[in-house]
Computed example of a mutant assay.
Amino acid sequence: MADLATTAPAFIEIAHRIVWATAATVDPSGGPRTRILHPVWEWDGERLTGWVATSPLSPKARHLEHEARMSITYWDPSHDTCTTDCRAVWELGEDERAAGWQRFTDAPEPVGYDPRIIPGWTGPEAPSFGILRLEPTRIRVQPASLMLGQGGELHTWRAA
């Protein structure tokens, strides 16, 4: 099993190159539900944290009330993949939402964007705007070269 200091940067390299991820939640009746999300990931040398600008009024929010965990997977046509299972925590305070908004406007392309492109998101105070913090409990990074028998390294990390 790889350590987080090796796994997190490898994860971010693939995730920020691919940008769009498939995110899975569990609805209150136990059914799996997926959607496409656009997380921004930060590695501070000790902790990997994901951030999602999303609506606290969405079906996803209701699913997370029931089960506050998500699985996030990135894939590209070359077959580079990375997945993280996360604890999901809403950041809905005024300061948290403002910081989250800024995080997306300041992030480098291709992950950075102006949240105003989403209908109804006029600013961080918009009722339909929220920030979801993702705290990984498991990360797996598998480069395509490994799948194709060309070398490479599988990185897997689990929280203690």
Rank of each mutant, 00 (worst) to 15 (best):
P32V: 13
D3M: 12
V19T: 15
A126L: 12
T25N: 08
W20R: 04
R116K: 14
W157H: 02
P39N: 07
A53M: 09
I18P: 09
E65L: 11
M70E: 15
A24I: 12
A2V: 00
W157M: 01
F129P: 13
I139P: 11
S145R: 15
Q102W: 00
T84W: 04
I131H: 07
P77A: 12
L154W: 05
C82E: 04
A159E: 13
P59T: 07
V40C: 04
Q102E: 13
S71N: 12
C82I: 05
L57H: 12
I139G: 09
P127L: 05
P143M: 06
H155N: 01
P59Y: 02
P110F: 10
T34N: 13
G151T: 02
A159R: 15
C86T: 13
R158D: 11
D114I: 00
S145W: 09
R116G: 09
T81H: 12
M147T: 13
R69A: 14
G123M: 04
W41G: 02
C82G: 05
H38F: 10
A10D: 06
L92Y: 07
I12Y: 01
S71Y: 01
D27V: 01
W90L: 03
L148G: 00
H63L: 09
E94I: 03
M70V: 15
A53Q: 04
R103D: 00
C82H: 03
V19F: 02
L37C: 10
T6W: 10
D44T: 06
V19K: 12
M1Q: 10
A160Y: 09
A159V: 08
A10M: 09
A23D: 02
G152I: 04
Y113D: 01
A88T: 01
E153M: 04
D114Y: 01
H38I: 02
S78E: 15
H63M: 05
D85N: 10
D80M: 06
P39A: 04
H63D: 15
A98F: 02
P124H: 08
T105P: 02
I131G: 05
I36C: 09
G151W: 09
I139R: 14
L4S: 04
H38K: 11
P136Y: 10
P9H: 06
R35T: 11
A98S: 05
T83D: 00
A159Y: 04
T25C: 02
S128T: 10
M70T: 11
G130A: 06
I14N: 03
I117Q: 14
P124I: 06
V26R: 09
A5R: 15
T122D: 14
S128R: 10
A98E: 14
R47P: 05
I117V: 15
T73E: 09
P77T: 08
L37S: 07
T25P: 08
F129R: 11
E96H: 06
P127G: 07
R138N: 11
V19L: 05
P124V: 04
A160R: 13
W101C: 05
S128Q: 13
F129V: 03
D95H: 03
T83N: 12
T22L: 08
V40K: 08
L148F: 14
A23S: 10
E91I: 05
L48N: 07
D27G: 13
P143Q: 05
